[in-house]
Design a protein around this nucleic acid. Structure first.
Lengths: 187, 187
DNA sequence: CTAATAGCTAAACGATTGTTTAGATAACAT
DNA sequence: ATGTTATCTAAACAATCGTTTAGCTATTAG
């Protein structure tokens, strides 16, 4: 028929994702996206519809990457110790030489306001629910725990993930280690 | 000499602070500030110099309010239990009927980027250091703890505060209670 | 080779950003 | 009462925001 795309959508979205990860949604402009994605505004809009569209795809891309860690977690039989390993895996995953990025999901949750985009909110809450289930099923590997304890500890771990995400952006390695060590003393 | 100001700077800053607290720095525009503070852009600029200036004063105002909780904490002799009380006091403090605001300090820390304003960064790190010292001195009330343990547990509590701040914005009362209960299980 | 068409470049869109300025208003010292 | 001057209102500033459009380019089908 006609001309072919000179870029691969998966590739340019990965670049966009890294930019959003570093700078957040509000601070990232279309101008910055053009430069980082290496394609024109027209191409961005024809592929993804809007800045929000680029962001939603970026979130999906991030979730896919994070899902590799979660799959490893799910495959383990080490119960709560596997969750501790996941925390360390996450630190390694979110580390960057120049800048501490934290977790794109929790960064976005922190950036969220009452009137923020509904679609993005749903992506976030779906992810949180999924992670919650995985944590719970890992905790249940210790059959001595009753469901009330499972619920309590799951809530504790989810909030701890938020603390850890902020921590990877703001604090040093020693402080992170101290944090993680004590988190799992309590379980 | 001439005309007098028709507003009190402390009062309009408190209104600005509440707006920043609800919406964050980036999302809050001068237009919104005008409306919320009830004064003209000209007045804002002549009193505070810039949007950044308004924000820095808002942070100071927030710190003053939070400092009331911290003073109560410092006055206590209940050691780690006093810190737990501080966590609950903070939840009460940051609660709002319509919207969950979290902590302005940690919200701002989460919004911070590599190229963000230096003055704001300093206000944040000063506060973090102060809170760290207070937590440490409360933990030292238990004389059986060595300094290594004090350092570990202080780092843990600081990061936990970040988790709690995000949590007050995103999660419900039950989840918060579960979180706080386990945080203090074996400190 | 030619016609059709999707993707490209680049300029422009209106709206809003933070900031400044010109002129009207009002309170003080004399 | 009057002149001085700080504060007010309101309009305008350049820059940037996310988004759209017009026209050139290049690929493919016939």
């Amino acid at each position: 028929m006609a001309r072919k795309k000179e870029y691969i959508e998966k590739e340019v979205i990965e670049r966009a994702m890294n930019l959003f990860w570093r700078n957040g949604f509000e601070t990232t402009s279309m101008q910055m996206l053009e430069k980082e994605m290496g394609i024109n505004k027209f191409s961005i809009y024809s592929s993804f519809g809007s800045k929000n569209g680029v962001f939603v795809e970026s979130l999906k891309c991030y979730k896919e990457k994070l899902n590799q860690l979660i799959e490893k977690l799910k495959a383990s039989t080490k119960g709560v110790d596997a969750i501790k390993e996941y925390f360390y895996d996450f630190i390694e995953f979110s580390k960057e030489t120049e800048l501490r990025k934290g977790c794109l999901i929790t960064n976005t949750a922190n950036e969220m306001r009452a009137d923020s985009d509904q679609q993005i909110k749903e992506v976030l809450s779906n992810f949180m629910n999924h992670l919650e289930e995985v944590f719970a099923s890992m905790l249940r590997q210790d059959t001595s725990k009753d469901e009330k304890t499972i619920k309590e500890q799951t809530d504790y771990l989810i909030v701890s993930m938020f603390g850890l995400s902020s921590a990877t952006r703001l604090f040093n390695k020693i402080q992170l280690d101290n944090y993680i060590n004590i988190i799992f003393k309590n379980l």
